[in-house]
Amino acid sequence: MITIKDLRKTYDGFEALKGVSFSIREGEFYGLLGPNGAGKTTTISIMSSILKPDSGEVLLNGKNIYTHSDESKRIMGVVPQEIALYNELTAYENLTFWGGLYAVTPSELKARIDEVLKLFGLYERRNDKVTAYSGGMKRRINIAAALLHRPRILFMDEPTVGIDPQSRNLIFEVIEKLHNEGMTIVYTTHYMEEAERFCDRIGIIDNGQIIAEGTLDELKKNSHARETVVVNFNNLNDALLQKIHSFGSDFKQVDNMIYYYTNNLQTELSKIISQCNDAGGEIHNIEIRKVNLETVFLDLTGKQLRD
């Protein structure tokens, strides 16, 4: 459905995208993950045709989105990262305004507004000004405003940032419902559990490049991520680090922690602990991490997703 070919974009000498290519199938839930500044928002902006790349192209059903901008925008919905609503208008007025910018008849729009308000549990509060809403309620209206014209592709740029668990769960339910109805969703998030829960496929972007792509299982299989023993020291310093290094273990240091990577946790765990003690390390705590998206991401980018 969407094909992205070799996108390049430079801002004031900074290369934000260095040849990004991937494709998304119809009805697919595609997660675009990456640390801050990796190029996610630039990619989404180009895909939603509000930003022109320096080179490369985005094809929607085989048509270039810039030469068919109007047509493309009519089947796309975008949930921006920021809450882009008019605070002094009511939820109903906001939805009427945003829905009215698409070719939707007034009666159809009215019915659709009622429908999405009910879907997001805000029908009873529809006549309240947005400024009186909680952060979670604003997030819900922010998403609702992108659904009024029944888009076939929905871009969601971190739609659950900073919200309460109740709103988060409600949004998850809506997202799952939309996906089940066949909507193509492109999703960026900092929350691994969201990506693991929803995404059919995931693209990991770092430094303006897609560095890995596939299903969660494929990513796990193809990465070097292994089960990890995270040892948090009270006294990690250069001398201790050198001693640990002399044991020849496979590890990585992150702040006061040492990440030991192993293919056989059961046999390796006691060995790791005794090595730490022998080196004179004061262990604050130990955490064992199974291979998941977080470890895959760390392995690929060297960064936590929230860095």
Binding site: S48, I50, S69, D70, K73, R74, M76, V78, P80, E82, I83, A84, L85, Y86, W98, L101, Y102, A103, A145
Partner: peptide
């Protein structure tokens, strides 16, 4: 500043 201009640009207008 509030992002509504960007949101307007997402629409076919």
């Amino acid at each position: 500043q509030e992002g509504t201009l960007k949101r307007l640009l997402y629409t076919p207008m």
